[in-house]
Design a protein around this nucleic acid. Sequence first.
DNA 1: GTTAGCATGTAAGGAGTTACATGATTTT
DNA 2: AAAATCATGTAACTCCTTACATGCTAAC
Lengths: 187, 187
Amino acid sequence: MLELAVLGLLKQKAMHGYELKKQLAEELGFFRQFSYGSLYPTLKRLALEEAVEMEYARGETPRRKNVYRITPRGEAAFATLLEESGAEATESREAFMLRLAFFRYMNPETRRRLLEGRRGYLQERLAKLRESLKRLRERMDSYSVQLMNHRVDDTEHDLRWLDDLLERERRLGAEPALPTRPAAEGS
Amino acid sequence: MLELAVLGLLKQKAMHGYELKKQLAEELGFFRQFSYGSLYPTLKRLALEEAVEMEYARGETPRRKNVYRITPRGEAAFATLLEESGAEATESREAFMLRLAFFRYMNPETRRRLLEGRRGYLQERLAKLRESLKRLRERMDSYSVQLMNHRVDDTEHDLRWLDDLLERERRLGAEPALPTRPAAEGS
DNA sequence: GTTAGCATGTAAGGAGTTACATGATTTT
DNA sequence: AAAATCATGTAACTCCTTACATGCTAAC
């Protein structure tokens, strides 16, 4: 997750770790916080894999603000991570939403696959939820009933939203993915 | 999390691991799935700590259905875990909801503390979310805008729900916590 | 009799957190 | 000159998952 988020953010703009952490909590702001204890090692690892590299801007020495820039290899890795989104991306709210934040980089089929995958998952869960509610309502305390009902509402709300997104996707048709290398040549 | 959930489920009824796993996905159904690879070791550890113990019902040999029962020590541990719910319980949706599923075991002050803690957290996040949206709207692609807007709606929805729960709590006043040892003596 | 589901476990690994440690730069 | 916040990192640990390994029992 962190790796995907980092690559996606660096795709927009070169940044150093500290800045990245703030963006993770802001640009993807809704999104969860990661600690430095995972962020810096991740950057280091990505650098080792040559998915990112350091930018020594304005003669600044390293190890006092390490500005990282994504490399072509990193772009490829990012694209692969997005395209290969599996079960996690449909079953985990966070994983799904992270992908959604990077929808502009996906091709239309992948977008649809993810949206429908998530929708299917939520529909299934909604059915199970309702079944549980029906079967257990009598035996449950009022807090649990409240919780279950809220879950149902929440899931329905999410489903309407997904339907909306799918509808838009259909209407706007094949909005192409942004290129891997955005606007490489001048102006 | 798993430990809390297991103790809470065993409080209702003695169960073996396999059964527990199904209940985790059903009674707390909405709730996340845990794998056997974490469930069985957790039961083992709890048994070692004497928070749970095996029930050798009807002369059944162990190691073919291990039915676990919560002990007084386990009840105490469960109560402590609930009462000491810290930041995680207000900042993580899942952690919060798990507590809510066990609200009947808490005393009214703890319930209120948790509900208001969660509300405060969501209010703060909502403010940040709106600020981000305002500041970044122009620079965001339409998917990110959709995502942010949905987050805002979602958070508002959650806040209304929390207000509702708090209101109920006030109206129904001091619904006492269920005892640590439920209905110990007969009928 | 063979497939599906019940039932339990271990070992290795993944993906993060917390706590610790350090020091520069900016603001008050 | 003190305090805040910017900035980077490591080591130990937590909590979970995946993959593996085993065997019973019920249904078809």
